[in-house]
Amino acid sequence: MRRFFLIAVPYVWLLALFLVPFIIVLKISLSDAAIARPPYVPQFEWAEGIRAFFAELDFENFTWLIEDDLYWKAYLSSLQIALTSTLLTLIVGYPIAYGMARAPEEWRPTLMMLVILPFWTSFLIRVYAWKGILSNEGFLNQFLMWTGLVSEPLQILNTTTAVYIGIVYTYLPFMILPIYAALERMDDSLIEAAEDLGCSRLSAFWLVTIPLSKGGIIAGCFLVFIPAMGEFVIPSLLGGSDTLMIGKVLWEEFFSNRDWPVASAVAVILLLILVVPIVLFQRNQQKEQEGDA
């Protein structure tokens, strides 16, 4: 009895507030828009049963997504922005994780804390911090003009470059931590063995260190890529009008255009795109855990 209660409470909670809402999204994505409250016409009633469900499905919101090039351009550009910024985060994050793993043992807890601290700090505030830095009169442009590198302030805020900077900055701890965990476990004598056997330091790095930290690299990349793909706050605070990201499109479709069926269809497709990396990520995590055991 107690066991039943223990399982049932969290189970029912998740069913009611996670699974059922999804089914509703799916249902509304297959409904017609209407100028009403709520602004959609339900495509079917639950009571009519399965046959009616399939008979009345209506894919016009999805055909609309394909026909209007705003949407697929937004998906492609989110994909491109997420991929590029994941790569940039890896390039910035790997040397930091590597330096942490090679730092003296007694420094490491402090370094760890320094990486984790920004993660606990408000995401919104960390994105906001860059607004003041990147603006035309901002700190970065003042600095660049002072050094004489540029004579006119660069337009960085409200461009896609600012979005890249924002994503790299906010998601950096997610990249550093798994790579650091992998590197810290690594046995140093492996590098020494490689060097003794005639590897240069660089080739020992490529042939030994990188393959051994592969699990951490993969985990870090997914942890950056998956949330970056649906990102809303960064493009809307730092990006410009030409920065297309699907999270922002969904938000506007819902709040500005009040077209709920299209917003739901956008969400369904975004989820379908993300299923592949999510499944790959789970597999990688499982493999890592089995490797530990």
Partner: peptide
């Protein structure tokens, strides 16, 4: 993605 969780709820 948070936008999906928010929308569905």
């Amino acid at each position: 993605p948070e936008v999906i969780t928010g929308l569905s709820l």
